[in-house]
């Protein structure tokens, strides 16, 4: 099902009246990977949580297909929207399959028992994320890359149409980063809508269909659009308040971004 998740002119404050951001508009659509990028403290993760409905905006609205998400029940929203926080570790030791089955929660009855159908869905999600061979392993014993894929499988088991992921590749090496983003790209091709917070502008340039660039100075939206439109030297330098250089990646042709060293302070 084609969905649109939209934040309209939202403002959010953890401790009013200090706003993290004001008047930000963001859209996550089915079939696209939307990247949320910007410097530390620019409110990317906060915006993602506002989109996910976990934080309530001080101003503005969050709409799912034009309807306000604030009025939806938690479970109903969880069947449309999957959310994966950064670096989650379980308290209890669970097998990979049990972890993925946890994702079925919004579909279960009052007593929360999984039916054969739920286990079929969980198996399918393991297969989709290429983690079926890990099925009976202890989740805690997995490597970082394996864990992230299993967690992705558990969010997919919610059978949401939209996925919101907070820095899914932050703890991974360069190979596993590409692997996860390639998987996200494939999911978008299958019709999922993805919103991904990331620090890695080069990955964002290569894998995202849309980008939102936030700035930390006066926390706000700097630019929104296709990677080539957003990842320009002038916009990035404004957002990061530092000289940023952009060239072309010799192999992929995507924008290649690097920051200049700060000029040394002269005595």
């Amino acid at each position: 099902m084609t969905r649109t998740l939209q934040a309209e002119d939202v403002a959010f404050a953890y401790t009013p009246p200090v706003d993290v951001f004001t008047r930000v508009t963001a859209v996550v659509r089915s079939g696209e990977v939307t990247g949320l990028v910007g410097p530390n403290g620019s409110g990317k993760s906060t915006l993602l949580r506002v989109l996910a409905g976990l934080l309530r905006p001080r101003e503005g609205k969050v709409l799912i297909d034009g309807r306000s998400s604030a009025h939806m029940s938690h479970r109903h929203r969880a069947r449309i929207l999957g959310f994966l926080p950064q670096m989650v570790n379980p308290v209890f030791s669970l097998t990979v399959f049990e972890v993925v089955c946890l994702g079925r929660y919004p579909h279960l009855g009052a007593l929360g028992s999984t039916q054969p159908h739920d286990r079929v869905v969980a198996e399918r999600c393991l297969r989709d994320t290429e983690t079926l061979d890990l099925r009976d392993r202890d989740f805690m014993a997995l490597s970082g890359g394996e864990r992230q894929r299993v967690l992705l499988a558990s969010v997919l088991a919610q059978e949401p149409d939209l996925l919101l992921l907070d820095e899914p590749t932050s703890a991974l090496d360069i190979h596993h980063q590409i692997e996860i983003f390639a998987l996200l790209k494939r999911l978008a091709g299958e019709g999922y809508g993805l919103g991904v917070v990331t620090h890695d502008l080069n990955l964002a340039a290569r894998f995202c269909d849309q980008l939102l660039l936030l700035s930390h100075l006066s926390p706000r939206l700097v630019a929104m659009g296709k990677p080539e439109e957003v990842l320009t030297e002038s916009l990035l330098s404004e957002a990061y308040d530092a000289p940023i250089r952009v060239c072309r990646h010799p192999l992929t042709g995507a924008p290649l971004i690097t920051a200049e060293e700060p000029a040394e302070a002269k005595p």
């Binding site: 479970r75 109903h76 929207l81 379980p90 946890l102 929360g112």
Partner: peptide
């Protein structure tokens, strides 16, 4: 079953409904 969800943290549980 809600306590199970809390095992991965409050945010994850909230995201699951």
């Amino acid at each position: 079953s809600k306590f199970d969800q809390l095992g991965f943290g409050e945010e994850m549980a909230a995201g699951r409904g």
